[in-house]
Design a protein around this nucleic acid. Sequence first.
RNA 1: GCGCCCUUAGCUCAGUUGGAUAGAGCAACGGUUUUCUAAACCGUGGGUCGGAGGUUCGAAUCCUUCAGGGCGCGCCA
Length: 576
Amino acid sequence: MNIFEIYLKKINEIVLTLNKKKIIIIDENLSSISVDVPPGNFNSDISTNVSMVLSKLNKKNPVELAKIIVKELAKDKNISKVEIVKPGFINIKFKKSFWNDFVKNIILNHESFGINQYEKKNNFLVEFVSANPTGPLHVGHCRGAILGDVISNILKFNKHKVFKEYYVNDYGNQILSFTKSVFLRCREIIYKETFPVMSQDIYPGDYIIGIAKNIIKNNPKLNFDDFEKISKNLTILSVEESLQIIKSNLKKLGILHDKFQSETNLVQNKEVEKVIEKLIKNNFVYKGKIKAPIGEDNKNWIEREQLLFRSTDFGDDKDRALQKSDNTWTYFASDVAYHNNKIERKFDKLINILGADHAGYINRISSSVEALSGEKDKLICKVSQLVKLIKDGKPFKMSKRKGDYITIDDLVKEVGKDATRFIMLSRSSDVELDFDFTKVKEKSKDNPLYYVQYCYARISSVFRNINQNINDEIKLENYNFSYNEDEIKILKKISQWPIVIDIASKKLEPHRLPTYLYELASDFHSYWNKGKEDNNKRFIDKNNKISNDKIVFLKSISNVIKSGMNIIGVDTPERM
RNA sequence: GCGCCCUUAGCUCAGUUGGAUAGAGCAACGGUUUUCUAAACCGUGGGUCGGAGGUUCGAAUCCUUCAGGGCGCGCCA
């Protein structure tokens, strides 16, 4: 039940009727008419800008126009007061009985409260994490991982279909270096050869030893004399090991992908050739030269003729190479094939979650998607900005040198899954995020996660005190409540929950959830403390009884907290 | 040089796809526990929304431009 949507519809109807009666003129497009939350200092529940939107067209000043509309609105039996305010806003105040119905509706439909029933349900593919399978995930991957997971949860909550995918870059030079590192670690173990830690293109991390040990144990017949001979086989084994680590990292964060799509697999199935043929047919590919990159040493740059994709046709700043000088495909080429593969699987929308360091890649890949699908906004890229790690009050820089980076396992062990998820989501993905280890670890009041969870725990404790459980179904004969102003204030906050979900879902902005839940928890804590001075605002009375009004009131709050925390993917403990 | 992101209170940030007198938390100071969980609450101070133009009934929000900070630029992935 989205009361803002309901009243927007009502106002549109009024305007249409008035237009039919030739009382007012309307635009074909009514979309700029909105129903919003009025600022707190006005004593009203919802407000609308109709008369300001239509005033110019009608050559009437907004206040005059508002008077006509207000006359119609006043017929609504739920409304107790309608006011016209300064520039021309119409402010509406509901009767108490309206809030009675509102709460009743939540209780009877608690499963679906907050869900936006869009006319069109989309089928989304969300690609996220997609880190190179060369080792465990570290903190840097964490934000994007959680972002993608919760965006998926939000879309699912709104009844869209979501498929979560991880693209495995198991092809190319980096994987070759990785396999070589595993190979050398194997020789270190078997032949006691010294491992060249400082050598270039070699992964020094200790985790490779573990991978090597596993491979030796599970493949006793493997011979490590000649790299060329086993390289192909060893790559498969190494990537498999590394994916096991990555999957277990993700599991610790509570993240489960539906599919891991291998790049090598696409190359072997000739999907790259297939897509390039398709592009050639449509004249999106040509042979040409590109200039050396700017701002770097390019003494070694050799200009040569090569296969290029016309990404400039779609707004990219240069055309992009598809083939390397050794005739293998570039990363971009197989990624185009991958996106073609996604398109062929008939998703309505493709969502990619990228780290800030890959933002420069967006133009070329969305160009390719547009070229292949003919749809301009088929692909939506969401960039998550950097996480600034702070430890002991100082910025903490991760480097590739051993021991100098924090893995997701370390993080979850120290901070916990819930705090990690909640904090990582607490800011808009467009801004850098300070992640302060020492602070997040403290179970202090500074930590917004506990603040919200505490609200739920307090509500649970009320139910516990009267020998009920917060999860018990409520069965009431009649729903006849009367709420005071402090309670209605919280009900109004609850009424905004569907809007929060709506915006978060349309703009793919999960941070709106923690922000909102914090505010709701704050309103509740505030109300709770009023019970110390005013017995009417306590939930349990002297006779250890609770009124239906209060039960239902508490249920409405805990319902929203729980469903929000579920989407974020964190627990709501009943005791703290 | 070019592209993307950011600039809002001392600090960290919200701000409902253009709305009304711009809001939280932290930090500072003062208060609240015989009673449902004080991991909480209440109060006080704190602002030229980076600068300058523009668009309009109306701008923190949109456009142009300038300044500052971050990330990126490849036949790496």
